[in-house]
């Protein structure tokens, strides 16, 4: 048995992957370092093509890294791929089932490949289906399920052998809001009950925010930032203040007032709207209102927004995650 008692469950150094394509090469992952502790829920957040799937496939032994090293659940990726496979679960981004196969039979045969007997596999499979609101699909063909049901079936198949570490590649795409919330609940429960470590990729800020203990933001094949959702949000220069004036004549004066607050950045004027960031928006609000009033600035609207991970991404990369 590899020693996994205390150390990190994933430890990757300088992971790289280059693909050969018709004309030249694509550097999908350009050197990623990762450390994940047992029992963590880590969100891997980034736009399309950032290299999330490529990184996951390397960590799951499905793709040989061009360079770099990694230990996953105590086993070296290159020296002991079978050891890694035995201990992890992986749910691919693009599905895992063929339409003609019967759901229950697929679950059992997948579990058997991990050396689990039919009876245990059936029990676990049914329990998992139930917890993801899929009871009753055991005897149904995968092709007859709805997109969201089939996605949840993928997840059941990745969990049926109760791995210590699960990689979920965009687990919630195609799920309705209720199924999504239910899956989040299940993921947290998995960690709380079995101590499973979860490494998931997502495009959704709210998902990464509310589910993960820690977030890694990837862009262009590199980790550009990491930390708890809270830490990352603090990287953005404070709360966003949006002040709307009745006319345009007072914008200069309003900018001056907001800009005069401690820690404020240079206000940005757009028509009759003035935008700026303040380190602590809600405390500054009453003072700001008073100052505006005293100067005779006619404000018709004032909004304070807490930073989101979207803002974090924008600050870090200069692009919005939705682009």
């Amino acid at each position: 048995m590899p020693a996994i008692a205390d150390g990190p469950i994933i430890e990757a150094r300088g992971l790289k992957r280059t693909f050969k394509i018709r004309k030249g090469t694509v550097e999908a992952v350009k050197g990623i370092d990762l450390t994940v502790q047992p029992g963590e829920i880590v969100g891997f957040l980034g736009p399309n093509g950032a290299g999330k799937t490529t990184t996951l496939r390397m960590l799951c032994t499905l793709l040989a890294p061009t360079d770099g090293t990694a230990t996953v659940v105590g086993c070296d990726l290159r020296d002991d791929p079978v050891g890694v496979r035995r201990r992890i679960g992986y749910v691919a981004q693009s599905g895992t089932t063929t339409g003609e196969a019967v759901a229950g039979q697929e679950i059992v045969s997948q579990a058997q490949l991990y050396g689990i007997d039919r009876k245990t596999a059936t029990e676990r499979g049914k329990a998992l289906l139930k917890s993801l609101d899929l009871d009753g699909i055991w005897d149904r063909k995968c092709g007859s399920l709805s997109g969201g049901q089939r996605r949840r079936l993928d997840i059941v198949m990745g969990l049926v052998h109760e791995p210590k570490l699960v990689f979920l590649d965009e687990p919630t795409t195609g799920l309705d809001p209720q199924a999504r919330a239910n899956l989040w609940h299940h993921i947290r429960d998995l960690r709380d009950r079995l101590g499973t470590t979860i490494f998931l990729t997502t495009h959704y800020m709210d998902e990464a925010d509310s589910l993960s203990d820690r977030i890694l933001i990837v862009d262009g094949g590199k980790v550009v930032a990491q930390g708890t959702p809270q830490e990352l949000k603090q990287r953005v220069s404070g709360d966003a203040i949006t002040l709307t004036l009745r006319g345009r004549k007072d914008t200069a004066q309003a900018s001056e007032i907001i800009g005069g607050f401690e820690g404020a950045d240079t206000p940005n004027v757009d028509g009759n709207v003035v935008r700026a960031h303040l380190p602590d928006g809600s405390t500054a609000l009453p003072q700001l209102l008073r100052a505006l009033d005293k100067a005779g600035v006619d404000a018709i609207g004032l909004e304070v927004a807490r930073p989101t991970l979207d803002d974090v991404f924008l600050t870090l990369t200069g692009r919005s995650l939705r682009d």
């Binding site: 799951c60 032994t61 499905l62 079978v82 496979r85 035995r86 992890i88 992986y90 691919a92 693009s94 599905g95 895992t96 089932t97 063929t98 339409g99 997948q110 490949l113 991990y114 050396g115 993928d154 198949m157």
Partner: peptide
């Protein structure tokens, strides 16, 4: 090819089989 496209092959390759 159909099984590969459906992700079945990858699902089996990630197992220790």
């Amino acid at each position: 090819i159909a099984e590969w496209r459906a992700g079945v092959i990858e699902r089996m390759l990630v197992s220790p089989a």
